[in-house]
Simulated scan of single mutants.
Amino acid sequence: MIKVGIIGAEKPEAGELLRILINHPEVEITTLYSPSYNGRQVSSCHHGFLGESIVEFSDKIDPSELDTVFIADESEIGENVMRMSEDYPDLRIIDMSAPRFEHMDAHGMEYGLSEANRKSLVRGARLAVVPSPAAAVALTALNPLALAGMIESDIDIDIALPHQAANAVDIQSLSKEIKFMLSKSHPDFDSQLRINIIPSDIGRAIRVRMLLRSPLATDEVDRVFESVYDDHSFVATSHSDIGNREVEGTNKCVVTINKPGAGLLELQGIGDVYLRGGAATAAHIMNLFFALDEKVGLKLKNSCFGMEDSHSDSQFSWFA
C-alpha cells in the first residue's frame, strides 16, 4: 500500500483529493497535517466523511514514514519537505498548492500533466507540480498540434470558469505556464497567447476556447490527436458541443474540434475545474510515479444526472 500524507489537509483541494484517495485500492491515508484542526475529525471540515474510517487531522508529519506527500497549501512545512526531499530518496512529493508552476525550477520538479509530460513522470521522477486547471485543459488541446509543429499563428484563448476560480487566475503566470510546455513540445514555438478570463455561473466546469489560424481540416486534426492520445485514458474528442455534466466529477478532458471559418481552427476543451488540474490530476501523477495503471482509483463518473437532464440542457454559451 502507498502510505499517503497531505499537508494543508483542511484546504478544499485536499478535500477533493481525499474523496478520491479514500476509494483508491492502493492507498493508505496515514497523515492529514493541519495544525489548526489538530485532533478533529475530517467530517468537521470536509463534507461526505461522516461515518468513514479515516485518520484525524494532526499537527505532526514524518516524511520518513510516508511514500507520498501531497502539498495543498503554501505553509512553511511544505517548503521544508520539498527542500529536504534528498533526505528521503523513496518519498514522492506532489505539489498541488498555488502558485505551483513557479516551484518547478526552485525544487527540480516535473510538470505533472500526463498528456504533455508522461515519459518524465514514469521514468524515475519523484517530485511534480500539478498544472493549473486552465493550463491543464488548454495544453491538452494544443499540445498535439505543437508536437507536430502545426501551430503557426497567435492564439486567442477564452477561459470560462466559476467566479472564485476566475478571481485566482494570474494571466501572466498562466501564459508563461502554457508557453513553457508548448515550447518543450516544439522548441520553435513562438506564438503569442491572448488570454481572456470569463467568470461564469458554470458549476464545476472549466471551458477553454482556443482560436488560431490553420489550413488543417478537421479530419487532419483528428488524426493528429489520435496519434498522440491513442494510449491516454482521460482525453476524448468531439465535433459537437459537450455539456458540462459530461466531465463534472471526472478526470476527463473533452476537446471539441471545429472549423468556424476558412483558414480558422477552433478547439474547445472542457474539464472539471477542481479535478482536472487539481485533485484527480494529483492522484494521476501518483499512479504514474508508482507504475500503477493510470486509471486506478480514477474511474470517476458524474453521479448527479437527473431524469430531466438532456445533453443540451447543460450547454454553455460564450455569448450569454
Rank of each mutant, 00 (worst) to 15 (best):
V4C: 03
V4K: 01
G5V: 05
I6G: 03
I6T: 09
G15E: 12
I20A: 04
V27D: 08
S36P: 00
G39Q: 12
H47T: 08
G48Q: 10
E56H: 13
S58Q: 07
K60I: 11
D62Q: 08
P63C: 06
S64L: 08
S75W: 04
G78Q: 04
E79K: 13
V81Q: 04
M82E: 15
M82R: 15
M84G: 00
S85E: 11
P89E: 09
D90R: 14
M96G: 08
P99R: 09
Y111D: 03
N117R: 14
K119E: 12
G124Y: 10
P131M: 01
P131T: 02
S132H: 09
A138N: 06
T140I: 08
L142M: 11
G149N: 12
D154I: 06
A160S: 15
L161Q: 08
N167K: 15
N167P: 01
D170S: 08
D170F: 00
L174V: 03
I178E: 06
H186Q: 12
H186Y: 14
H186S: 03
D188E: 14
F189W: 04
D190S: 15
G203C: 02
G203H: 05
R204G: 00
D231Y: 04
V235P: 06
V235L: 15
I242C: 02
V247K: 06
T250C: 00
V255Y: 08
V273A: 11
R276E: 07
G277Q: 11
A280E: 12
L288E: 13
F290A: 05
L292K: 14
D293Q: 13
K295L: 02
L298C: 10
K299S: 04
N302F: 02
C304P: 00
C304D: 15
F305A: 08
S310E: 12
F316D: 05
S317Y: 11
